[in-house]
Computed example of a mutant assay.
Amino acid sequence: MTTVAPDTDVRRHELAEFLRSRRERITPEQVGLPRGRRRRTPGLRREEVAQLSAVGVTWYTWLEQAREIQVSQQVLDSLARALLLDASERTHLFALAGSPDPTPHAPCPTVTPALRALLDQLGPVPAVVQNSRYDILAYNATYGRLLCDMDRVRPEDRNCMWLAFTNEEWRATVVDRAEVNRVMAAKFRASMAEHLAEPAWKTLLARLEAASPEFREVWARHEVVGQGGRSKYLRNPLVGLLHLEHTNLWLGPAAGSRLITYTPLDPETRERLERLERVASAAPVLAGRS
């Protein structure tokens, strides 16, 4: 006879593993703590997370040990901030704890006011902040009109994988679409290796497989490609052909969020990006823009 663990037991253990994985990815420097000379633990220590969250060390340790304890919304909110969770990770944290999020649309802590200011100052160079799942967390005016009218995309659909395989405006802009999408899928597979059990990743994968025959075909190849910059051509409907260099600037561990810029590779592209920025800046600022 097979015994199935109660749902609450499974969720407690998933919560423990999730907290541990998020703690281990953050460096002390990211949260303003000294590294010290005798650090053996990858990322933060348990006592450091407890300190940042204003909770007891023993209590937090019990959480990572999957003990049967109650967690308040206030404590979950503090943990989400201390662990620098993005919007999807925060949702996952509250779901595992079986608690409604009191501020489900709170700004992502990865995107600080200083980073939002930097995005704007990079114009006319298109710039965007993404996490490893390709969720679009923030972007400047030029990026908002680079591949599609991002302001008009529903927040839950602001994901580069989803847009690359389902959004016709985005797809029409990419010149070598088949090759670009093949490489994107390979990068997504490489990133997903560390997140196979996480609901947000599995949900996105299921959506893509259900919505796009093209995605199903390239996903079945099991190709893997590491993250890296490359040049690409985009045919923007507002300003014409653009030749750009795609560059990643990591904001933390290589599996975390990154700032991506699209630098012009010739004078014509630079001039066209300047025109695109003027057009985009004249439009009303909607949710999502920096």
Rank of each mutant, 00 (worst) to 15 (best):
L79I: 13
A50L: 12
R38M: 11
D77P: 03
H92C: 08
D101F: 01
L85F: 00
A87I: 10
Q30N: 06
L19E: 01
A87C: 10
T58N: 11
Q30S: 15
L19D: 01
F18N: 02
L96E: 08
P100A: 05
G43Q: 09
R22I: 14
L63N: 02
P42M: 09
L63F: 10
R46Y: 05
I69G: 05
A97Q: 09
R37F: 10
T58V: 14
L96P: 08
T91E: 15
L44M: 07
T61G: 11
E64Q: 13
L76F: 09
I26N: 04
G43F: 06
S78W: 03
E17G: 11
A50N: 06
P100R: 02
R81Y: 04
R90A: 00
Q74L: 12
E29G: 03
L85N: 04
Y60V: 13
E48L: 13
R46A: 04
V31H: 04
L44R: 06
R45I: 13
P100V: 12
H92F: 05
A97R: 04
Y60K: 09
R22C: 07
L15N: 02
R38T: 15
H92E: 15
L52S: 08
P102N: 03
G98C: 08
L19F: 06
L33S: 04
A82V: 12
S72Y: 11
L96A: 01
Q65F: 01
W62C: 09
R90V: 05
D86E: 14
R45H: 10
R39V: 07
R38Y: 15
V71K: 01
R45W: 07
R23Y: 07
G56V: 13
P100F: 01
R46C: 08
T91P: 00
Q30G: 02
W59P: 04
Q65R: 12
L93N: 00
Q73K: 12
L83T: 05
R25P: 14
F18V: 02
A66C: 11
D77T: 15
T41Q: 12
